[in-house]
Design a protein around this nucleic acid. Structure first.
Length: 858
RNA sequence: GCCCUCUUGGCGGAAUUGGUAGACGCGCCAGACUCAAAAUCUGGUUUCCUUACGGAAGUCCCGGUUCGACUCCGGGAGAGGGCACCA
């Protein structure tokens, strides 16, 4: 027998157990659809090439949940895949002359090896990448269904066009009106684009948020704001000297008598009509289109208007007319593209009115103001009050006024109540190569014709050139040329590809039957969906999570899935942060480059220059405050990295990576290891009759069962940092255990150690397996059931009661549990320290909270 | 501008949801072991006064409710996040 090693060898152990799990397919989901299921999913990664600490944190949490739920007897689905289409692959192709497919699949191979080194309990057999034709062919099929269902359509829309790259840019890619890469001024162009009709579900998507009880309130709120429902009224104004009308949308129809102008969007048909005969207006419209494409630029832009000279008749005040402007701040895409302005009660209208010298008539007067003298100065009044200067509305509240106007408008057929949403249809066309081809063909005779289903997938061609910017599909010599599916004459393929958010909007459904010839196997999705626990970064709170919700509803409508909501539970984890370092010259430094000198100063290792420490920020390449997970795993092993990820910070908050914290996690593993290495046999299960326990053994048993109870509750409640603390307490109790030589000692210690191994397995799976085996147990600890706490051991027969005098703690008493109130009161009053602080004062009242506190009011 | 969240020792954080504030970890201090260092073990560690016993203050600030407030209410400050010409 060789000497036991003096330390736990993580590297050897981790490789060994990973091989065992893979060999035994320990984490494959069961095919038995009668068992209770649990679907755990972490947001799948983009294959950038290497995993980062954010991934480590995300997948550690998901793995903890998956392993815990398995132990609780659930049939667990825990798959992994790759969100593999996207721009970085094309940029790499441009810069490094490597094909996007090669670049992507090599990155996947690297990252897969890294994820596997973490020991995640994933079912790799279900792996796919969204760039696999075997995945995106089904996405193309879904698109054809959406097309038939009217959920996908094509229309002209304004886009940001980079003239030097020949491509459309997302709003985020336009910086100060210039392309982020080219630096060229961006043009607004009108292009035919594909859209998904997410607005058809606006109301549902909003209403259903209320039922997503296991979603963070914050995310639900953000989605609600994004959908942006507002109840208002559509209302027609007649134009003087013309037959047509201007229809406006408003949510403040109660303020109609304060109207002092109408404003049209520059893209409004009437504006175009007028501009045809008015060159100055035409110039103004042109100017509006040019100004800023980014949100920020639009916000800074001055509010400008052009008086068309037209006048509109007030719908309820026959004598009154108001001027009609074209204004740069009115959006064609929202409401009707026209508004009425009531300057007294809307800040933007007020600014506009002051600029163009239009009347400001208050029509809502706050309760404490005098209607005769109330005036609006620099700030519009948007609060509650009574209507005034408003004919038949005078004296009504805002709500009554709205109701009255809406009733009259509908009765007189001048308009109607209307609900509007901020949410827009989802534009999914991208002028890119590395994405899922949109399966349609453009035929001169037949127009836009869907590709026949039997001809799917429309595969990306491999032989493409990346020598120039723009979409290589456009210049491919042959790929575009196909016969029209309808008439058979020569036609052209669509060269746009889908937004990559489409790929990630349904992958969780595909995981249920990833090798199916169909889009999904209905049996499988009916069993597995919805995802019981989805985990990812809060940065996806709106786009990805909203698209996925829309997609699932749309797929339900098309008969693919039986659920409307994809994610029953959502958890958004915080970021991983690290302090930043800069040298004298202001260069960012990697933590690995920074050394501590003997006198404690920080210097740049190679140069010896002084280093200043900046505040902790999200790890980012630009700030260089990154720690490579691979380095940590090499040095300490995956279990240490995983343990640290769960310690200290609550999962939803940001976590600061520190070297000392990582070392602490490493030390903790060694500390447990010493418990076992001393005498591995102690862990061996004892099935004999339960012996009698001495006080010491009983105390250890209590600590063990309290740990089971607390850790279980902590995991269920996503308080992983608290679970970690409770495990520390158990280890401390085991270390402090002093055998008294009684029969129960070994039994209690064996129980404590077995429970400990079971409790740490979801967090430190390799180490737990190693300890389990070291102690001579059969099987794998990851297949052992979760322990149950013995209720009898959770309550002690005494309780520590705090005694307060006038709310201040004066003594603590060890009293029998559930002692009668009178006895507790008597015991408290009898205490010497209590008497001393009472100092002869008479007791007025005594409050007794059983097993907790006695408060004496004197 | 609108909406939301957070604020507790030197640091990360805990507190059974109104009942002993500071669990647990990091760091630090002291001691043991060692020729020494590392590792490990033991003890201490909110602040102030006191040699001690003990006492006082204390959860961003001000005020309130309560026998009792980190927790509930009102007002304010600071930090962070989301949306932002949405009529």
């Amino acid at each position: 027998m060789s000497e036991p090693a003096s330390r736990y060898n993580a590297k050897e152990s981790e490789a060994k157990w990973q091989a065992v799990w893979a060999d035994r397919r320990s984490f494959a989901a069961g095919e038995d659809f009668d068992r209770p299921k649990y679907y755990v999913l972490e947001m799948f990664p983009y294959p950038s090439g290497r995993i980062h600490m954010g991934h480590v944190r995300n997948y550690t949490m998901g793995d903890l949940v998956a392993r815990y739920k398995r132990a609780r007897g659930f049939n667990v689905l825990h798959p992994m895949g790759w969100d593999a289409f996207g721009l970085p692959a094309e940029n790499a192709a441009l810069e490094n002359k490597v094909h996007p497919a090669k670049w992507t699949y090599e990155n996947i191979a690297n990252m897969k090896a890294q994820l596997q080194s973490m020991g995640l309990s994933l079912e790799w057999e279900r792996e796919f990448a969204t760039c696999d034709a075997s995945y995106y062919r089904h996405q193309q099929a879904i698109f054809l269904d959406f097309l038939e269902a009217g959920l996908a359509y094509r229309r002209e829309s304004w886009v940001n066009w980079d003239p030097s790259e020949h491509t459309v840019l997302a709003n985020e890619q336009v910086i100060d009106g210039r392309g982020w890469r080219s630096g060229e001024p961006v043009e607004r162009r009108k292009l035919s684009q594909w859209f998904f009709r997410i607005t058809a579900y606006a109301e549902e998507l909003l209403q259903a948020l209320g039922d997503l009880e296991r979603w963070p309130e914050k995310v639900r709120l953000m989605q609600a704001n994004w959908i942006g429902r507002s109840e208002g009224c559509r209302l027609a104004f007649e134009l003087e000297g013309r037959d047509d009308q201007v229809v406006v949308f408003t949510t403040r129809h109660d303020t109609i008598f304060g109207a002092s102008f109408l404003a049209l969007s520059a893209d409004h048909p009437l504006a175009a009509d007028l501009a045809a005969k008015d060159p100055k207006l035409a110039a103004f419209v042109e100017q509006c289109r040019k100004t800023g494409t980014s949100e920020e630029a639009m916000e800074r832009a001055e509010k400008l208007g052009y008086d068309t000279g037209l006048r509109a008749r007030h719908p309820f005040d026959p004598g009154k007319t108001v001027p009609v402007y074209v204004a740069n701040f009115v959006l064609m895409e929202y409401g009707t593209g026209a508004i009425f302005g009531c300057p007294a009660h809307d800040q933007r209208d007020l600014d506009f009115a002051r600029k163009y010298d239009l009347p400001v008539l208050p029509v809502v007067v706050p309760a404490d103001a005098d209607p005769a003298t109330f005036e609006v100065g620099e700030e519009a009044y948007v609060g509650p009050g009574k209507l005034a200067n408003s004919a038949f509305l005078d004296g009504m509240t805002v709500a009554q006024g709205k109701q009255e106007i809406a009733d009259r408008v509908e009765a007189e057929k001048r308009g109607n109540r209307e609900v509007n949403f901020r949410l827009r249809d989802w534009g999914v066309s991208r002028q890119r190569y590395w994405g899922c081809p949109i399966p349609v063909v453009h035929c001169e005779a037949c127009g836009v014709v869907p590709v026949k289903r039997e001809d799917l997938p429309v595969k990306l061609p491999d032989d493409v050139e990346f020598d120039r910017p723009g979409n290589p599909l456009d210049r491919h010599p042959t790929w575009r040329d196909v016969p029209c599916p309808a008439c058979g004459k020569p036609a052209k393929r669509e060269t746009d590809t889908f937004d990559t958010f489409v790929d990630s909007a349904w992958y969780f459904s595909r995981f249920c039957s990833p090798r199916s010839d169909k889009v999904v196997d209905r049996d499988a999705v009916d069993y597995w969906m919805p995802v019981d626990q989805y985990i990812g970064g809060v940065e996806h709170a709106i786009l990805h999570l909203l698209y996925a919700r829309f997609f699932t509803r749309a797929m339900q409508q098309c008969g693919y899935v039986g659920v409307a909501e994809p994610f029953a539970g959502l958890f958004t984890q915080g970021m991983v942060c690290h302090v930043t370092y800069r040298d004298d010259a202001g260069n960012w430094l990697l933590p690995a480059e920074v050394e501590r000198t003997e006198d404690g100063a920080l210097v740049h290792g190679p140069s010896g220059r002084r280093v200043t420490t900046g505040r902790s920020e999200k790890m980012s390449k630009s700030r260089k405050n990154v720690i490579d997970p691979e380095d940590i795993i090499d040095r300490y092993g995956a279990d240490t990295a995983r343990w640290f990820m769960l310690s200290d910070s609550p999962p939803e908050r940001d976590l600061e990576w520190t070297e000392s914290g990582a070392e602490g996690a490493w030390r903790f593993i060694q500390r447990i290891w010493r418990l076992f290495a001393a005498d591995p046999g102690r862990l061996r299960p004892s099935y004999g009759a339960m012996p009698a326990f001495g006080d010491s053994a009983l105390a250890l048993r209590r600590a063990t069962h309290i740990a089971i109870q607390s850790v279980t509750a902590d995991i269920e409640g996503f308080r992983f940092n608290v679970a970690v603390a409770h495990i520390y307490e158990l280890v401390n109790a085991i270390h402090a255990f002093k055998p008294t030589g009684e029969a129960g000692d070994q039994w209690a210690l064996g129980e404590a150690l077995r429970v400990l191994v079971r409790l740490i397995e979801p967090a430190m799976p390799h180490f737990a397996e190693e300890m389990w085996a070291l102690a001579g147990n059969d099987g794998l600890v990851c297949q052992q059931p979760w322990p149950a706490a013995d209720a009898a051991l959770l309550v002690e027969d005494t309780a520590t009661i705090a005694v307060q005098v006038n709310g201040k703690l004066r003594a603590t008493l060890e009293l029998a549990r559930d002692l009668a109130e009178d006895d507790a009161r008597a015991a408290a009053l009898a205490d010497e320290r209590v008497q001393r602080s009472l100092d002869g004062k008479s007791v007025r009242k005594v409050i007794v909270v059983p097993n907790r506190i006695v408060n004496i009011v004197a």
